[in-house]
Amino acid sequence: MAQLIKNHSPASDSWSVLQLAEGETPETVALPAGDVIFPLAVWLARKAEIVSCHKRIGLLLQPDEPVEAVAGDLEYFIVIAVNFPKFVDGRGYSTAALLRQRYRYEGELRAVGDVLHDQLFYLKRVGFDSYALKEGKDPAVALQSAFATFGDSYQASTDQPQPLFRRRA
């Protein structure tokens, strides 16, 4: 199981991701109760239904799924999980930056999938605040140093909207 890190400490995870089994479609899949993270296609197909029976709603975005598709829906989500099928696929960084900076999403933004220690600093910078650390990766190592690799940054991003040159003494 992936270990969740939230607010810079290990956290338990109440959420489960709805997985479509073979033959199931977004239109017909049974909607489970509880804290569920819905794939984008299910959300788009079943929005009214989900809203009527769930108070707490999560959304899963794959790298090629555009943020723009849910730009008007963000108030519904307690958590948005952005999947990194491979850690070298950097599209999720832009997804997060857009969610936070352009669409002002303020709920939990979770990195899931191939989430390793050495990307945590960048993930935090673009706006993630929770991380489902890949199975087998030691959360202690992640918490020790990975969020503080660098003491400052040149560029503006979600965690520091002012570039260094506007803050330089």
């Binding site: 950097g90 960084y93 930056a97 960048y122 993930l123 673009v126 040149y154 560029q155 040159f165």
Partner: peptide, 16 residues
């Protein structure tokens, strides 16, 4: 040089 600083550890574009 200004571009160099901007490129250095750019968080969004480290995995292009």
């Amino acid at each position: 040089e200004i571009l160099r600083q901007w490129t250095t550890f750019h968080p969004e574009f480290a995995f292009l």
